[in-house]
Design a protein around this nucleic acid. Structure first.
Lengths: 205, 205
DNA sequence: TTGCTGCCCGACCGAACATTCGGTTAGCGT
DNA sequence: ACGCTAACCGAATGTTCGGTCGGGCAGCAA
């Protein structure tokens, strides 16, 4: 429940107000707890500490809340793909970089990415989100294909299958990872990257 | 739209009826498309080809449909844990067996497991399902702990983390795998097991 | 003081929700 | 031919949904 402080410099129990971002932040938390469809505007208002109608002062409706949230997640994920990572890096290094940075982004934007990955496509906003997700997947699959072609990752598993398993593992983090727990993002990235690239079996000397 | 054939052995175009199982089968398909909370009983009735009120002849309500579905998934998953797999098998072999059989079960009961993994806990039935899921996770984590202790899998990744990454990968299959596609369950199990145990990097000789 | 703007509220609306009810139909055993 | 029952239906139940409306109140500029 993040709010801006009361504008009134006089002390006493301040009145608090929301801006769009802080409102979306709370909304996303509730959506992730009860599901988007399972959350009513009344429940949302209760958790925000304001009335239902006040929500409509900040956003046009429930669907815009969803749109703002998933767009934020998608923007962050696509930014990873567009990151430069060394001028003469091969595809395999770029893939490893993408996996690690995706884990970091997922952790940094955890509630927003969580909501994104649970979208069903019941409304226009949701279908647009699904479209962008597919675009992201295609670009990752292309990267895996290149890495396999240059011999950096195994070729006996079909590249399309590899990328699905790979990002299935990354995306599954939303089901349990909490940044405020004992596990740092760096350690998580190390463990995941190490498992998918080197395997769980005891390493040969 | 699966129905039982007309009970009348006579030729004429039979009347068709649902039993609980075939009704749940259709319901689960719709729930997975639109989400449980996003699906109305009217939409459900339309897809079943019967009226809304007729649904209540077979089940007590929407929640029982969910309960029947997720219970089926959970029963199948727990059955894997209870499978005997060789009298003198070590924990590592048992873990690999569990992973592979879980993939097979997930594929065999795909719609039911999909619904299970998307449960939020908004109702009593859902909370019971979440409880049983946690129990399943605990038993898998214990297996990983044993495998690490006997030196079968790497000890430099914490066993609790390993089991989460491992079954995160398995569970993420529901997001894209379709048994009627080109990829057989056996090939999928091979690829997944190979990735998580041996890694994606090109194998050393 | 007045008027303006940003933020908020209670009361309310039509639509959609899950569920119920009284009654109808189809097909089996007799 | 008859009666029984599983399976079904249309219409209506009360409830909850997302969203609207007119107005209240605080802070600020004039």
């Amino acid at each position: 429940m993040i709010r801006r402080p009361d504008r009134n410099p006089g002390a006493r129990q301040g009145r608090t107000t929301y801006d769009r971002d802080s409102l979306v932040e709370v909304a996303v938390a509730v959506f992730n707890e009860r599901g988007y469809d399972g959350t009513g505007m009344e429940e949302l208002a209760r958790r925000l500490g304001i009335s239902k109608s006040s929500i409509y002062h900040h956003v046009s409706g429930k669907e815009e809340l969803l749109d703002l949230a998933v767009s934020r997640a998608l923007d962050a994920l696509f930014a990873v793909l567009d990151e430069p990572c060394g001028a003469h890096a091969n595809a395999t290094a770029r893939l490893e970089h993408t996996v690690r940075r995706s884990v970091e982004t997922l952790a940094a934007e955890l509630p927003y990415v969580t909501l994104l990955l649970r979208v069903h496509g019941n409304s226009e906003a949701e279908q647009r989100a699904l479209e962008r997700r597919r675009e992201f997947d295609h670009r990752v699959a292309e990267l895996v294909r290149q890495a396999a072609a240059e011999g950096g990752v195994r070729g006996d598993i079909e590249p399309g299958l590899t990328s699905r398993l790979l990002f299935g593992t990354v995306n599954s983090l939303i089901e349990w990872y909490r940044p405020d727990g004992g596990l740092s993002v760096a350690a998580l990235g190390d463990a995941l990257t190490s498992m998918v690239f080197d395997g769980l079996r005891v390493q040969r000397p």
